[in-house]
Design a protein around this nucleic acid. Structure first.
Lengths: 341, 341
DNA sequence: TTGTAGGCGTTATCAA
DNA sequence: TTGATAACGCCTACAA
């Protein structure tokens, strides 16, 4: 029969409960747990036993309140369904988890306003540090964080003005190099497929333009920009439009692998030979790229390391280290040339 | 030049700061923010202005400490790089975010012990509720949560004993049905490819066995179980082994789509015709399934709704509702029959 | 090595 | 409608 969810629920054990059981004061229990060497071995053993028996779990709120260190880090990323950011999270976790930090994941859904709302809301947790994606946050937010003494590190992009602390790579240069690769292979009518159109995509587009302009091949009509989220299906659709409007196009640079896999699939279905009739390159080098038919040329991005290094840097700042002289950590990228180009 | 990270950092504004500025007491400010109708309109306006000006953000630790409601929910999932759980998270978020709950995501890495450690650690946040994946947690943990009055809802699987609150579907029945589909299509030598071997996979395997045994086609040697994480590449490898050991096998049921996409890729590379020489079915129906060549037959699982419904149920419990009579919420699944079978 | 006193920022309780 | 007071659980500072 139905029963109250927390019927006969008992209060959680506190430091005092443990202290009472052992016959010492609360502070001694606190010390036994947090700085064991300050407590005699005998007492420590008794205390640990009592902790175990009572199932005592420290209350983080109380600790945060009194120590003004929350051991919490807010991480704002644009999406959870994008492998890129999941890999980044893994790197972050690798660094912060062993140090006892709790990560608060904020999903901004690629929305600047939502990002700001989230950041503001996370301030109520008094995070010891913040990891942000990109560098588009309004100066007000940076000032606010600075005022509160909360260090922030930006991930994925670099900041030419060198004002913010950044760990990432040059999206722009990556776009330029992969486009140059296509030019070197002899392709001339090179389209750009962009989806979502977040700042990283636009920077890749910039690199694409630079490469083509330098080669005298720039053709604005070959830029296909779609604000919708990337999906394989979108790549298929965009290819159809491209073939209708510019059948002479001989290569496509897709802003990410999802789109590129869609272009490969679409090409296969309508009988376009890749790379003979159409070269295709993607971005990020997800697992599927190497297993596609043909294998997909892409740009390998160091997202795990970005997370790892950004968290490491943040950790130092949270521990009171100075802001480093060199504020841009460029982790580079790698062209993976495969069968599709 | 280098400077201290939190040089000239100023204390965060408190309720008292706001109160002082307006010339009222702290409790009035608290009320103006939390139960606006208890405060006169005039005062409220003044207070909101002061809040804005000072950039006041409530301190959650203080609130949690005194109110013993943390507005926090711990969610334990086995992996962040598996779309299934990301979709589930999206459903959870959809319900809890508007209600002001902070979600703490714990990645158990498919490790029962790590799950238990995480859950214990999360207790220090005094979560108002807990969402768990599967039903394998030790009874001790359930008792502990019950003792603390923290409601828990289990996701993905169902609990035949009806002891736990579960939102999911019958993994076993899904495995049985997709296998039966292969039998109905005339396949007889049907292999099972399992990776990771978490409880859900083993339940699908159970269903597979039941179907084959009922048809008199069960052949233990066709069960390929690999504890490694699922990857496309693993599917390719497993196919190679299968072809070497059992070239007469005419169909494969893969425990998930990653493996199945690998089998499709591998088949293409070694020239096996799908489904003529080998039928392939996957599980979960990820986006890639519909775009594969040939399109991949799979089982569509309601993971977004699982998250949504589990969070909704938890919400009710956290709000003090009774535990429902019917403790198993079966959301079903759907066979997506496509070209690969 | 152990203990006492006080307070972190907020809300529950009671009172005006 | 507004306020005074106490308390949540813990840690810092100081004392013994």
């Amino acid at each position: 029969m139905p029963r109250k969810a927390n019927q006969n629920a008992s209060r959680a054990a506190t430091l005092h409960d443990v202290a009472g059981k052992v016959g010492v004061s609360a502070i001694t229990v606190s010390r036994a747990l947090n700085s064991p060497d300050l407590v005699s071995e005998k007492l420590r053993a008794q205390i640990l036993a009592a902790v175990d028996e009572l199932g005592y779990v420290p209350n983080r709120s109380a600790r945060t309140l009194v120590s003004s260190r929350s051991h919490t880090v807010a991480v704002l990323i644009p999406s959870l369904s994008n492998t890129v950011f999941i890999d980044t999270l893994a790197g972050i976790n690798e660094v912060l988890d062993p140090k006892g930090y709790q990560i608060l994941i904020g999903n901004t859904a690629y929305d600047d306003e939502k990002e700001e709302r989230l950041l503001r809301a996370y301030l109520s947790h008094a995070p010891d540090g913040v990891l942000l994606t990109g560098t588009r946050q309004r100066p007000e937010m940076r000032q606010r964080l600075a005022k509160l003494g909360i260090p922030a590190v930006h991930m994925m992009e670099l900041d030419p003005s060198n004002e913010r602390l950044c760990v990432g790579f040059s999206q722009d240069e990556a776009g330029r190099q992969i486009t140059t690769h296509l030019l070197e292979r002899g392709y001339r009518r090179i389209a750009f497929f962009g989806a979502r159109l977040d700042p990283r995509v636009m920077q890749r587009l910039d690199g694409y333009r630079k490469a083509l302009q330098a080669a005298g091949c720039y053709a604005p009509e070959l830029e296909y920009l779609n604000p919708k989220p990337s999906r394989i299906g979108l790549g298929v659709e965009m290819l159809e439009v491209l073939r209708r409007e510019h059948p002479d196009c001989d290569a496509v640079f897709c802003c990410n692998d999802d789109l590129a896999l869609g272009v490969l699939t679409g090409s296969h279905r309508i009988g376009i030979k890749v790379p003979e009739q159409l070269a295709v390159v993607g971005f990020n080098d997800l697992e599927g790229a190497a297993w596609a038919t043909p294998t997909l040329t892409s740009v390998r991005t160091p997202r795990y390391r970005i997370g790892f290094e950004a968290a490491s840097l943040l950790l130092k700042l949270m521990e009171g280290h100075n802001v480093p002289e060199q504020r841009q950590l460029d982790l580079g990228f790698e062209l993976k040339l495969r069968g599709s180009s």
